[in-house]
């Protein structure tokens, strides 16, 4: 695989926070690659470090108390971490756009929608106020917001969540970014509005050639949107795979557990499978496998040594060269490990 296929590469990122209770290791060794024009979903539960990961790419980690202790992130060839504020400002909002979970609190309540979007254009593209206004109207049309002319002069409190999310999308794509980071963009919205917003993101990806990082905890949204998926647990990526492999041949017991905890759609009502226990304390993360205490397949090794990341051979019928690798951070994929459900290649 040649590296120009990737717009964004993150290697071995680690982020800590100083708190009164001690040091929280929120992100511990996260690596992923975002393919050009594709969507990478980062999935995980609250506190797994998915939001901190993308916030550190955007320079949004407050330092102190936060600290990026390790790792690198490159957009094209340009480093994003540990760079001067001026250099970061030239990238953030321009080459990487971001939309947040709660549009009501992410937008400035004292500025009209139009002025907030125009601000980006004036700062990054040096537009005059009147040129920016024309452009904003065009952007709002693009996001299919109802009555865009009227929205220009309205304030966030006058709009619904769905409309605000459209306005935020307009803002994030105003400078034609290479990468769009969407942090739980539909979590605060109803399913019918979610469907509309996801469709909009897909259309924009096509028309603008956007590469999207989608943070979500909803596996339905992942299946709908993603080309590649990274599953995070306790500050680490425990499995990364092309979307079909992740759903049909999950390789990490945590991924398997997440799938089973969802009520299925089959007419036969099945008992929900439960992942017992709760995620580990990131003040003192377990030295070995973070999932060992909740895993149905734990071996003695899992509690004594941190698992390496293993690459799974692609299924025989796939075109392996065009897909991303399927990797899992789990001892069960060691060549000498006993057989287990996560190693059988059968669809689950």
């Amino acid at each position: 695989m040649n590296s120009t296929q990737y717009v964004l590469e993150v290697d071995n990122l680690a982020v800590e926070f100083d708190t009164y209770g001690g040091v929280v290791q929120a992100v511990r060794d996260v690596s992923f690659k975002l393919r050009k024009g594709k969507t990478l979903a980062i999935v995980g539960e609250s506190g797994c470090g998915k939001s901190v990961t993308v916030q550190s790419l955007m320079g949004l980690i407050p330092m102190p108390p936060g600290r990026i202790t390790r790792g690198s992130a490159r957009l094209g060839g340009d480093e994003l971490l540990h760079i001067a504020p001026a250099a970061l400002n030239a990238i953030r909002g321009k080459r990487i756009g971001m939309i947040f979970q709660d549009p009501m609190s992410a937008l400035n309540p004292t500025m009209s929608i139009g002025a907030q979007i125009a601000e980006t254009l004036v700062v990054h593209r040096g537009m005059t106020a009147s040129a920016a206004r024309t452009e904003v109207l065009e952007l709002l049309h693009l996001t299919q917001i109802p009555e865009p002319e009227q929205r220009l002069n309205q304030y966030p409190f006058e709009c619904s969540g769905g409309m605000l999310q459209r306005a935020m999308i307009a803002m994030s794509i105003a400078c034609k970014p290479e990468v769009l980071i969407a942090d739980e963009p539909t979590t605060a919205l109803d399913v019918t509005i979610q469907a509309q917003i996801l469709l909009l993101l897909k259309q924009l990806q096509q028309s603008h050639g956007l590469s999207i990082i989608l943070i979500t905890h909803d596996l339905g949204v992942v299946a709908h949107m993603a080309h590649d998926v990274a599953v995070m647990y306790a500050g680490q990526v425990v499995e990364s795979a092309p979307v079909d492999d992740l759903f049909y041949r999950p390789a990490h017991p945590y991924t398997l557990g997440l799938r089973a905890a969802l009520p299925g759609n089959d007419p036969q009502k099945q008992r929900l499978q439960i992942i017992p226990g709760s995620p580990p304390d990131l003040f003192a993360p377990p030295p070995a496998c973070a999932f060992a205490d909740r895993c149905p397949h734990t071996m003695r090794l899992c509690r004594s040594a941190a698992p390496a990341t293993y690459t799974r051979p692609p299924p025989p019928a796939s075109q392996a060269s065009t897909n991303s690798a399927h990797e899992a951070r789990c001892w069960l994929h060691h060549p000498q490990a006993p057989s287990s459900p996560v190693r059988s290649s059968a669809a689950t």
Binding site: V191, T192, Q194, A195, L198, D218, L219, G220, V221, V222, A223, H224, A226, V243, D244, F247, Y248, R259, L262, N265
Partner: peptide, 10 residues
């Protein structure tokens, strides 16, 4: 409207 956790279906 609810997306299902099944890429082929989606």
């Amino acid at each position: 409207s609810k997306p299902e956790p099944d890429p082929a279906h989606e």
